[in-house]
Amino acid sequence: MACLQRNFQQSSSGNQRPFKKLQGSRASAFAEMHQPTLRLLPERGYEYAERKVARVSVDYRVDGHYYSVQYRHAQAQVDARTTRTAAEPLQRGQRIAGHAHCTFKTRARR
């Protein structure tokens, strides 16, 4: 812990040290150029998503899962967008359904 404090003190004092050939210091350059452009972090964090092209089967399932869609989308080609928590079939960029993500595939009924 003491090592971290010492490193922080050394870096902060180095940031206050004036430039040799320019006006100001690292801290003043940051405050002048970069700090005004900083923004707050978004409320929701980034969530990795995978996309793949899939075809809706005749029983309205997408990609072997019971992610059902409306009957008019049967046998249509859709973009299946899956995240860690959700699965969404998209058609022409519009979400046509939304489901909680299922980690296992279901077997077809006979």
Rank of each mutant, 00 (worst) to 15 (best):
T83W: 12
S28N: 06
A31R: 00
D63L: 06
G98Q: 02
S57M: 02
F30Y: 14
V78K: 00
K20W: 12
V53K: 08
A100P: 00
T82R: 06
R6K: 07
H73G: 01
N15L: 14
G98A: 08
E32Q: 09
P36V: 07
T106G: 14
G14I: 05
R26F: 15
R95N: 08
R72S: 06
P18F: 09
T82Q: 07
I96G: 04
E43S: 06
A87P: 04
T82C: 10
A97F: 14
T82P: 02
I96V: 05
R55D: 10
Q75W: 04
R92L: 07
P42I: 01
S11M: 11
S57D: 12
K20S: 07
A76H: 02
R44K: 04
R6L: 09
P89K: 01
R51K: 13
G14R: 06
R17K: 09
R55M: 11
G64D: 03
G24T: 05
A108I: 14
A108T: 09
F8V: 09
S11A: 08
K21N: 05
A76I: 03
K52C: 15
V56A: 02
E88H: 02
H101K: 15
H73P: 00
R109V: 07
T37A: 06
R107W: 12
A80S: 01
Y48P: 04
A76R: 04
G45R: 00
P36D: 00
R17A: 12
Y67P: 03
V69E: 13
K20V: 08
N7V: 15
G45W: 08
V53I: 15
R55F: 15
R61F: 11
R95F: 13
R109P: 12
E32C: 04
E50N: 08
Y67L: 01
D63R: 03
P36S: 05
L22C: 10
L41D: 10
P89W: 00
Q77Y: 05
R72F: 15
T103M: 05
R39S: 11
Q16F: 15
H101I: 02
E50D: 13
G93S: 04
P18Q: 03
V69Y: 15
H34M: 08
E47G: 11
A54W: 14
R61C: 10
A29N: 06
V78Y: 03
P89A: 00
V53Y: 11
E88W: 06
P18D: 01
S57W: 14
Y67W: 13
Q5N: 08
T106Y: 14
Q9W: 10
E43L: 05
R110A: 14
H65C: 03
R17D: 10
G24H: 08
V62L: 07
H73Y: 07
T106W: 14
A27E: 07
S11Q: 04
T103F: 12
R39V: 10
D59W: 12
S25E: 02
A2P: 02
R81G: 00
Y66G: 02
H34T: 10
T85L: 08
R107S: 09
P42M: 01
H101G: 05
Q9P: 05
L38W: 14
H101R: 15
R61D: 12
Q70E: 04
A87G: 00
K20C: 05
Q16M: 13
A49L: 00
P89G: 05
S11H: 06
Q70W: 03
T106I: 15
E43T: 03
A80D: 00
Q75F: 02
F104L: 13
V78G: 01
G14F: 05
Q5K: 08
